[in-house]
Measured scan of single mutants.
Amino acid sequence: KLLSSIEQACDICRLKKLKCSKEKPKCAKCLKNNWECRYSPKTKRSPLTRAHLTEVESRLERLE
């Protein structure tokens, strides 16, 4: 599967780190437990900047 097509777990399953069936409108866990089942939009991760990478590398060197 391509990364862009990976389905996201519902908010509660993601928060509780449960295996989500990803069914809509309610996944199996939410249906069974009568929880409100919501699927928040995916958040875009910002790409690493060179400055951040350099900072992490220098912190790693100090720890070694």
Score class of each variant (00 low, 15 high):
K1N: 01
K1C: 09
K1T: 00
K1M: 11
L2V: 07
L2P: 12
L2M: 13
L2H: 12
L2I: 14
L2T: 11
L2G: 13
L2E: 11
L3Y: 15
L3E: 12
L3V: 14
L3N: 15
L3I: 14
L3G: 14
L3R: 14
S4P: 14
S4C: 14
S4H: 14
S5F: 12
S5N: 15
S5I: 14
S5G: 15
I6A: 14
I6G: 15
I6F: 12
E7L: 14
E7H: 15
E7M: 15
E7F: 14
E7Y: 15
E7S: 14
E7I: 14
Q8H: 14
Q8G: 07
Q8N: 11
Q8K: 11
A9D: 04
A9F: 12
A9N: 10
A9Q: 06
A9I: 00
C10V: 00
C10E: 02
C10H: 10
C10M: 05
C10P: 08
D11R: 03
D11N: 11
D11T: 01
D11L: 10
D11H: 01
I12M: 15
I12H: 10
I12F: 11
I12S: 14
C13V: 06
C13H: 00
C13P: 02
C13S: 08
R14V: 03
R14W: 07
R14H: 12
R14I: 03
R14K: 12
L15H: 14
L15K: 14
L15E: 13
L15Q: 15
L15P: 00
K16E: 05
K16Q: 08
K16M: 01
K16R: 11
K16I: 08
K17N: 04
K17C: 09
K17Q: 10
L18V: 15
L18F: 01
L18Y: 10
L18G: 00
L18D: 00
K19T: 05
C20A: 04
C20K: 06
S21N: 08
S21Y: 09
S21K: 07
K22E: 06
K22N: 04
E23Q: 10
E23R: 04
E23K: 08
E23S: 08
K24T: 09
K24F: 12
K24R: 13
K24N: 06
K24V: 11
K24D: 04
K24E: 11
P25N: 03
K26Q: 10
K26D: 05
K26T: 15
C27Q: 00
C27E: 08
C27P: 02
A28H: 12
A28T: 13
A28Q: 12
A28F: 14
A28M: 15
A28R: 09
A28D: 02
K29V: 02
K29P: 01
K29S: 04
K29Y: 02
K29L: 02
K29A: 06
K29G: 03
K29M: 02
K29H: 10
C30N: 07
C30Y: 02
C30G: 05
L31Y: 11
L31S: 12
L31N: 12
K32V: 05
K32G: 05
K32D: 08
K32C: 09
K32H: 05
K32R: 09
K32F: 04
K32L: 03
N33G: 11
N34V: 13
N34Q: 09
N34H: 13
N34E: 11
W35S: 11
W35F: 13
W35L: 11
W35I: 10
W35D: 10
W35K: 13
E36T: 10
E36K: 07
E36V: 06
R38P: 05
R38L: 10
R38F: 11
R38W: 15
R38T: 05
R38S: 09
Y39T: 04
Y39I: 03
Y39A: 03
Y39G: 01
Y39M: 01
Y39L: 05
Y39D: 03
Y39E: 01
S40L: 07
S40H: 05
S40C: 09
S40Y: 06
S40K: 09
S40T: 12
S40I: 06
P41A: 10
P41M: 09
P41L: 05
P41F: 07
P41H: 05
P41I: 08
K42Q: 03
K42P: 09
K42N: 01
K42W: 03
K42T: 09
T43N: 12
T43C: 07
T43Y: 13
T43K: 15
T43E: 10
T43G: 03
T43A: 12
K44S: 02
K44F: 10
K44T: 09
K44E: 07
K44G: 01
K44L: 02
R45L: 01
R45S: 00
R45I: 09
R45V: 11
S46G: 03
S46F: 01
S46C: 11
S46R: 12
S46W: 09
P47A: 08
P47R: 00
P47H: 09
P47K: 03
L48A: 07
L48H: 02
L48N: 07
L48V: 06
L48C: 07
L48D: 06
L48K: 03
T49I: 02
T49N: 06
T49C: 06
T49F: 01
T49S: 06
T49P: 10
T49G: 07
R50P: 03
R50M: 01
R50T: 03
R50E: 08
R50H: 02
A51R: 13
A51V: 05
A51S: 15
A51T: 14
A51H: 12
A51F: 03
A51G: 06
H52E: 02
H52A: 05
H52P: 07
H52V: 04
H52F: 11
H52D: 03
H52L: 10
L53V: 06
L53R: 02
L53N: 04
L53W: 02
L53G: 06
L53Y: 07
T54Y: 05
T54E: 05
T54F: 01
E55K: 14
E55F: 13
E55S: 10
E55N: 12
V56T: 10
V56E: 00
V56I: 03
V56A: 12
V56M: 05
V56S: 04
E57L: 02
E57K: 00
E57C: 00
S58L: 14
S58T: 15
R59W: 00
R59A: 06
R59H: 10
L60S: 10
L60Q: 05
E61L: 09
E61W: 09
E61N: 13
E61D: 09
E61T: 02
E61A: 14
R62A: 00
R62F: 03
R62S: 05
R62L: 12
L63D: 03
L63K: 13
L63E: 04
L63T: 02
E64G: 02
E64R: 12
E64S: 05
E64Y: 00
E64M: 12
E64H: 10
E64V: 08
E64D: 05
E64W: 08
